[in-house]
Design a protein around this nucleic acid. Structure first.
Length: 363
DNA sequence: CGGTTTTGACCCGCGC
DNA sequence: GCGCGGGTCAAAACCG
């Protein structure tokens, strides 16, 4: 209830206490994704079929799952249209206003919500439409100007029958820039740009409003691959790096090709193992890799950083993520300790990517 | 020398 | 229409 009262945007970032991160669930869950609280959803997600999650996970890593299955398995309701449905959009704006009132940076939220009409299908349509756009990647970079003409073309793509009631006519115009499915995750790391097995070229950097830390923009260097990622540091907790992936790789991970850890990480390890493995490595590499691998399957996934504050507090692992996908439930003893979910204080990209984070669907 | 990073400028969407 | 902020471009600098 208190949660309900709390607007996600009103959530006090500074309320975040690394030492308390285990006291409750992730804000996403608390505020943004009631579905997760819904036992029913939990089934697909964590309680009932932990294995299903695993399987989905693995499967999806292997690209053998369709989005629906995946979304079911992962309970990616947050990525579903519901989250971004026009009505919700309305709510969102309200929340944004509230947020603004609360003095919380919400700009990105509103933006993304509108820009990222990630309906379950949108991943398809958007990617297709985007594909058109992405194909340009070659001539791409100069396409800037072409974008405008292109706009008209892709407007249908958007499947905007929904039409974002909120913007009405505007919606049509803005179809121009469609975004690939995106998802973000947090990583506790000292390094901004975490290795994920892919090669990236930095193409921009911008100062982030309300944050002393800049946001860096990277693009996959592989030809024809239009995946981008943004990396920024949480200003509430500088030790946390927020990485946002957009799009999907249309190639294999270079690391994989080399027969690197990829197989182990992606194909063989169970989620639980993942955590362990990741923590052991003290690097976010694996997680990134794994994430980027299944990235194609999801519209928007939120992965939460797991930190060790509990017992390993002092250790402050380099990086550790906790995925609500992979570690559905404390399958194992210590896991329980380890799965301290971080209260994500960030209101920038994160919200941007996690619409559900920005509004509550339940009273 | 080719690839990557840096960085200022530019474009675009959105709110006022 | 204007200003703001996010996102991208592209030339120059840098690096191995």
């Amino acid at each position: 209830m208190s949660n309900e009262k709390k607007n996600p945007y009103q959530y006090d970032p500074f309320d975040y206490n690394p030492h308390e991160i285990n006291r409750s669930s992730f804000p996403f869950f608390n505020y943004g994704t009631p579905s997760i609280q819904d036992p029913q959803n939990l089934h697909g997600f964590e309680s009932d079929h932990p294995n299903s999650s695993f399987m989905s996970f693995t499967d999806c890593l292997h690209g053998s799952m369709d989005y629906n299955t995946l979304s079911r398995a992962f309970d990616m309701s947050c990525s579903s249209s519901e989250v971004i449905s026009p009505q919700l959009d309305h709510e969102n704006s309200k929340n944004q206003q509230a947020a603004a009132a609360a003095g919380v940076g919400d700009h990105s939220v509103g933006t993304s919500t509108t820009e990222n009409p990630s309906t379950p299908n949108s991943s398809v349509s958007s990617s297709s439409s985007e594909a058109a756009g992405s194909h340009e990647h070659e001539d791409s970079e100069k396409k800037k100007k072409e974008k405008q003409p292109k706009v008209a073309v892709c407007d249908e793509a958007a499947g905007d029958e929904e039409d974002k009631s909120k913007k009405g006519s505007k919606a049509k115009k803005k179809e121009k820039r469609q975004r690939e499915p995106r998802f973000a995750f947090l990583t506790k790391s000292e390094v901004d740009h975490l290795e994920d097995g892919y090669r990236w070229r930095k193409y921009g950097q911008k100062a982030v409003k309300n944050s002393p830390y800049p946001r860096s923009y990277y693009r996959c260097t592989t030809q024809k691959c239009v995946v981008k990622k943004r990396v920024e540091r949480s200003f509430q907790d500088p030790s946390i790096v927020i990485t946002t992936y957009e799009g999907q790789h249309n190639h294999q991970c270079p690391a994989t090709l080399r027969g690197n850890l990829n197989l182990n990480a992606v194909g063989m390890l169970s989620p639980n193992s993942l955590l362990t493995s990741a923590s052991l490595n003290g690097s976010a590499r694996f997680q990134h890799e794994f994430l980027t691998q299944f990235l194609p399957m999801n519209n928007q996934l939120q992965l939460q950083l797991q930190s060790h504050h509990h017992q390993d507090d002092h250790q402050a692992s380099n990086s550790m993520i906790y995925s609500n996908l992979v570690a559905p439930r404390p399958h194992h003893h210590q896991q329980q300790h380890q799965r301290q979910q971080l209260h994500v204080p960030d209101y920038g990209l994160l919200q941007d990517l996690v619409p559900s984070f920005g509004h509550k669907q339940e009273p």
